[in-house]
């Protein structure tokens, strides 16, 4: 373990001795696997079948938040992007952009949480990159990950596959990640018992596909929240959607915090939830299977796909009235009175 004062220097990114030391002492041992350990210019491996490939950059601030950190997020986010195409995620790249002066001890915490997330998801980091930029050129640490996965035979999942009559499933309570991160931001610190839901959902998807290979759409409602995801799916599939406010799972703490701050939980980000759209005949079966998985325990059927009002999502409120659920516009900002 390094002393708490050890920091990343520009030389750690120079490509010279310090760079090698950083990679070989701090990164490779933690993420070790045969493909990575060769340390060639590119990862070499065999894959055959239908591939899914995705990339995402992670710039969350602060980098440590209740329930996770930027490292865990950078693996789970990319795992989930692959899983939402029905793919089994396999091989990952991780690129770190580190601000000069970043504490080595913090880097090691993040490297460890990346390792734990890859182990849970069952994926391997096979290639990577490290850059150090002068102080002020980045905010502590940015991470880019890319991943490839294999799509099993017979699986055809796309945002444009929703059909009228389909049921809409949600894997659990919404809004936790957004509020957990927001609660830590400078000048907005408030104490709330809310943890980020950040989690890899690929095994949940495997379970759900085992219950029904007929799943039409899967999507994780991250930035923009559930409302934005449903709008995207409705637009892509050219169908309408009706959801029931009463059936949307919500933690009390999230609801109370949203009331207080003037947020609508439908628009708050999640990092460990998914929306599934599938034929009504399979809905109960998939829901039961979902609830067996630790990441789907509070899953619920929240609505259905309709022919009317294509591209629009309508919610039946708790009062029995109905209201349009639009996409998020702009940033989520607190209200003032």
């Amino acid at each position: 373990m390094k002393s708490t004062e050890d920091r990343i220097l520009l030389a750690h990114g120079s490509g010279g001795r310090l760079s090698h030391e950083l990679v070989q002492k701090s990164l490779v041992p933690s993420w070790s696997n045969p493909v990575l350990n060769r340390l060639d210019d590119a990862a070499v491996f065999k894959l055959s079948g239908r591939l899914a490939f995705t990339t995402d950059s992670y710039v969350v601030s602060p980098i440590f938040f209740p329930g996770g950190d930027i490292g865990k997020l950078s693996i789970c986010g990319t795992v989930n992007d692959l899983a939402m195409c029905g793919a089994q995620p396999l091989y990952f790249s991780v690129a770190l952009i580190i601000e000069e002066g970043f504490r080595l001890a913090e880097l090691e915490r993040i490297v460890t949480s990346i390792k734990e997330a890859t182990e849970e998801a069952g994926v391997e980091i096979v290639t990577g990159d490290t850059k150090v930029v002068p102080r002020g050129s980045a905010d502590k640490l940015f991470i880019n990950t890319a991943g490839v996965g294999l799509i099993p035979e017979g699986v055809d999942i796309s945002g444009s596959n929703a059909r009228p009559g389909d049921k809409i499933l949600l894997s659990g309570t919404i809004g936790e990640h957004g509020l957990a991160v927001m609660s830590q931001r400078e000048s907005l610190e408030f104490k709330i018992p809310i943890q980020s839901d950040c989690a890899p959902l690929n095994k949940l998807v495997v379970d759900m596909l085992a219950a029904s290979p007929e799943i039409h759409c899967l999507r994780d409602p991250t930035r923009g929240g559930l409302a934005t995801t449903l709008n995207e799916l409705a637009t892509q599939s050219k169908v309408g959607m009706r959801i029931d406010e009463e059936n949307i799972p919500l933690q009390e703490a999230v609801r109370a915090t949203c009331e207080l701050l003037g947020f609508d939980p439908l628009y708050v980000a999640n990092e460990g939830k998914l929306v599934a759209i599938l034929p009504p005949t399979d809905a109960e079966r998939v829901l039961n299977q979902m609830r067996q998985n630790c990441y789907g325990r509070e899953g619920a059927i929240i609505g259905e796909v309709v022919e009317q009002h294509p591209g629009r999502v309508v919610m039946r409120t708790r009062l029995g009235t109905s209201r349009l659920i639009d996409m998020l516009s702009g940033d989520l900002l607190p209200r003032i009175c």
């Binding site: 009317q308 009002h309 629009r312 309508v314 109905s322 209201r323 349009l324 639009d326």
Partner: peptide, 13 residues
């Protein structure tokens, strides 16, 4: 009005 109602006509179909 924009967020909740602007498409009321579409919804009443």
């Amino acid at each position: 009005y924009y967020q909740y109602q602007s498409h009321e006509a579409a919804l009443s179909k």
